[in-house]
Design a protein around this nucleic acid. Structure first.
Lengths: 147, 147
DNA sequence: CTCCTTGCAAAGCCTTTGCACGCTG
DNA sequence: CAGCGTGCAAAGGCTTTGCAAGGAG
């Protein structure tokens, strides 16, 4: 709840107008336990009001991202998900085979982040990181399906 | 050269037929210094023969990926690139702002890989990893453009 | 000779855009 | 009120698909 208000305030303070549509998009995004796709945001918003268009969802998500309030990540393939920045930093271990993912402890990346910063002056976006690979169950089936 | 032959042999042994089109796609991919987009593969192949269709390029790339001979990676945004597995493991530090990327030393990820394997039984795909973030120059402009 | 592959063109998918109306501030 | 934000519908870019003809093995 408060999370939504924070986002709304941030938008308002940056000169954006708060419309019912934007509120609903923000709420859908903030209430999502994890990341959701644009389509899922649309569905959730649509469940509350038919007076929202897909284009508006995309436009609102773009605004949030532009303001650094949300992030967009491509979980391999064509799967694009969104999340508010307030979900905190986290790592996704995305299985390239079953497309499921595990959340990993962000702490594991701390030292890597420092090294990359020192060596390459590159600031990895730890807010929303996604590492492709193979999950445990797919590692087993991997060999078997090579027929 | 030999790299192409290896790929071709692998396909042949898995029951795929080797056509001039597939050879050309494989050569274009294998000779690419880094990763290339599907469109670039198409252009390179097209430069050698007009008798190749975009659909064939996509289909061949899919076959290669299905066989684990190539990988597809989304460098943020709509940029999708391909590379043969034989290019060895490497990390891309992709700037989410200017979309340019730096190659980082894969060794930096070695310990992280082990930890993720131990903690989560997840095998990160180090063959072709891509970390989003901000490059040095965009880190400077970042603060300035927040108007 | 079989049937895997291809080219062609069209469809698909997700996302973006142009425009006039409507609502926020 | 001024002008940003919206819905609608159409376009857009990239990728996939159906089908008949063609070529690999």
């Amino acid at each position: 709840m408060t999370q939504c208000q924070t986002l709304i305030q941030a938008l308002r303070q940056n000169g954006y107008r708060i419309t019912p549509q934007r509120e609903m998009v923000i709420e859908a995004l903030a209430h999502a336990s994890h990341h959701i796709t644009a389509e899922e945001v649309y569905e959730r918003v649509r469940a509350r009001s038919r007076a929202v268009n897909r284009a508006t969802v995309y436009r609102t998500l773009d605004v949030l991202i532009g303001q650094g309030l949300a992030s967009r990540v491509n979980l391999g393939g064509a799967v694009v998900v969104y999340a508010t920045r307030q979900h905190g930093s986290h790592i996704h271990l995305v299985c390239r085979q079953c497309l499921q993912w595990i959340e990993a402890d962000p702490e594991l990346l701390a030292s890597l982040g420092l090294q990359l910063q020192n060596h390459y002056r590159f600031a990895v976006d730890f807010q929303h990181l996604c590492l492709p690979g193979l999950c445990q169950s797919c590692q087993s089936t991997q060999g078997a399906e090579e027929s």
